[in-house]
Simulated assay, not measured.
Amino acid sequence: MIGQHEMDGAALRHGEYKIPGGKLVVVDLRVEQGRLRDVQLSGDFFLEPPEALDAINAALIGLACDASAAALQAAVQAALGPDVMMYGITIEGVAVVVQRALA
């Protein structure tokens, strides 16, 4: 499902992606002046530690809305420490759901 709405001058976007062999990943975000804002990743996946979700959201904020999948993946990877465990979600899947929201 992909959606877009206008509110406060910023385009609201929504994307969903079922990770193959994994879980549903959902993203809601705004696009302002060609940049990602208010990124909120959610779904039925698990991250350890839980704070990793905030790190992923923060890593995506400010990226160009035309960023490549590789650039999205690199930003997420850079935000995650070596101790982060991802269950039912992948860095690649995060990039896919963001790109779906922006399509």
Rank of each mutant, 00 (worst) to 15 (best):
A79F: 04
A59Q: 12
A101S: 04
A55G: 07
P20C: 08
G62A: 02
L29W: 01
V84F: 08
A95R: 00
G3H: 06
C65N: 12
R37M: 05
G81C: 10
F46W: 07
L102R: 01
C65M: 06
P20I: 05
I91H: 03
G62M: 13
G3C: 03
R100G: 01
S42Y: 10
D44E: 13
G15D: 11
G3T: 03
P49L: 03
P20F: 03
I89Q: 13
Q33F: 02
F46Y: 12
V98S: 08
Q77E: 13
H14W: 10
V26K: 11
K18I: 09
A10M: 04
D8I: 01
E48M: 14
V27R: 08
A11W: 03
V76P: 06
D66P: 09
V39P: 13
A71S: 07
A75Y: 03
G34L: 09
L36I: 03
Y17N: 14
L24I: 12
G93R: 06
A75E: 11
V84C: 11
L63Q: 13
A64I: 04
I19M: 12
H14K: 07
I56H: 10
Q99L: 14
A11E: 10
H5I: 05
V26W: 00
A10F: 01
N57V: 08
L53H: 09
L80T: 08
A55Y: 11
A79N: 07
E6P: 02
G93A: 00
D83M: 02
A70T: 14
G15P: 06
F45S: 10
R37T: 05
Q33K: 10
L63C: 15
L63E: 15
V26A: 03
V76S: 13
E51V: 07
I56E: 10
E16Q: 11
G81F: 10
R37P: 06
G88Y: 05
C65T: 12
I91G: 15
A101E: 00
S68R: 06
P20T: 11
